[in-house]
Every structure is written in C-alpha cells, then in structure tokens.
Amino acid sequence: MSDVKEITPINLMLFGIIGGLVGIYLSPYFPTAGALGAICAVIWSAEAVRRVAKYGLGTGVPSIGQIAMGMGIIAAMFGLAMVKSMPLAGPILALITASIIGFIIGWFAQHVIKMKIPVMIRCMTEIAAAGALIIIGFSASVAGNYDFVGSLIPKVFDNGVILAVFWVGAVAMLHPFNACLGPDEKQKRLLYLAGSTGAITMALMGIAAVMTLGASGSITLLLGIVLWLIFYKKFWDEVYNDAAAVVGTGLIPKTEA
C-alpha cells in the first residue's frame, strides 16, 4: 500500500507520549502547553486509529474514537484523582491506567469476541493512552493546571467544558482516518489533517480558556488558529499533490466508464 517512506509507529508513539507529558507538566506555568501536548497525542492517536481501522472494524471508524475517549476519560479521572500527595504522578498514573484498560479491552476484543485483528491489542492500548493524554492536556489548558479536585472539577467539569473536550477530542482523533479512508490513503496527509483537527480543538479550548483564565487563554486561542491555518494549508497542499485532478467543474473523465 505504501511505497513512500512512513514515520514508524514507535517514533510517533514516543512523540505522542513525550510531547503530551511535557505539555501537561508545563501547563501550570503556561496553560497553552497543555493544548500543544494534546495535539502531539492527537497525531499519535490518529496514526493508531489508522493502523487498526485499516482492517475494517465492522462498525465504522467513529466507534473507535468513542471507545478511546470513554476509556481515556475514566483513566484520566482516576489518575488525577488518586494522587493527592504527589500531584506530579497524576498524568503518568492516568497514562498507565488507560493503557491497562485499553490492553484489557483489546485482549478481550481479540480473544473473547474474536475480532481477528492482529494489531488490535497494541492499538487499543495506544488509543486509550492517547485518549487519556488528550483529555488531560486539553482540560489542563482550560483549567490552568491538572489538579483534579481543586481546578478541574470547578473549571472543566462543572461548566461542561469536559464534554467539548470529550467530543471534539474524539472527532479530532477519528476524523483524520475517517476523512482519508481509501485505497490511496497516505500517512503524511493524514498526519497533517490530524494536526489540523487537533488545532481546531485547541482553538475551541482557547475560547473556553478565555472565560476561565482570562488573558492567558487568548494565547491558546490565537496559537490554535495559527497552527490550524498552517496544518490546513499543508493538508491542502497534499491533496493537490495526491488527487487525480483538481478541477472547477466538469464531467467525470471517460476512462472510468
């Protein structure tokens, strides 16, 4: 399928985990970093969704984004709530919990439900972990830090921003592969699109952050819009490159009939 060189999954995984965690840990000092970290995780998860959804899930690509966020949110709440004495361990604990839940669901999907997808377990684990990082990252950029009881509950859960994180995050994760599905799907285009969807989510979080954090939220908003423009432009460049032809209007070429 792919004769062009692709970024290996392991590199993207490292990019997602390290980028995500660094972003989240910087968020108390600079809230925008949380959203940037989450974008790294979005790019990673889009690649993971791509690998597993290529096999055909039988229920459409969106289902995997939804289960990812379902697992991610449970793990994120658990990880952040559990570590009162050592708040620094929260995101890592959430990551580990998400991986465990993802591994268990992947194992069951593979061996009990018998889905016969060789990469199922690994991808489910990756997707769940990325889901947790996306949720924590975007929430932290809105709340200003990742303290669960102190700031996340009043600033993110209570006013319902978490739902936007949940759903727009899920769309950011599943949309790239859903949109690029096809026999000539290319990783590069997909990753640019993932960056673009992640940046849209970041801009939305920026709007929410303006309300919760004031001026520092506007940085998230502006940076999100700028990043989105960059990634969107890159995506269109790839489309112009890859599409058979780009025309204003006209008939379908005769060769197809």
Partner: peptide, 28 residues
C-alpha cells in the same frame, strides 16, 4: 464553521485517497 471545515477536509481527503479511480476533486 468548524463543522464546515470538517466537511471540506472529509470531501477532499476521501477523493484524494481514491486517486487510482481517477475521479477529480471538484471545487464547485
């Protein structure tokens, strides 16, 4: 507006992913 953006990328993405069928991307 965000929904509109998603709509454009899904149309462009799908058509570009099926370039072997030689279907052009209609800008109209």
């Amino acid at each position: 507006v965000i929904y509109g953006i998603f709509a454009t990328t899904s149309y462009a993405g799908r058509v570009a992913s099926q370039s072997r069928f030689k279907q052009p991307l209609y800008m109209d």
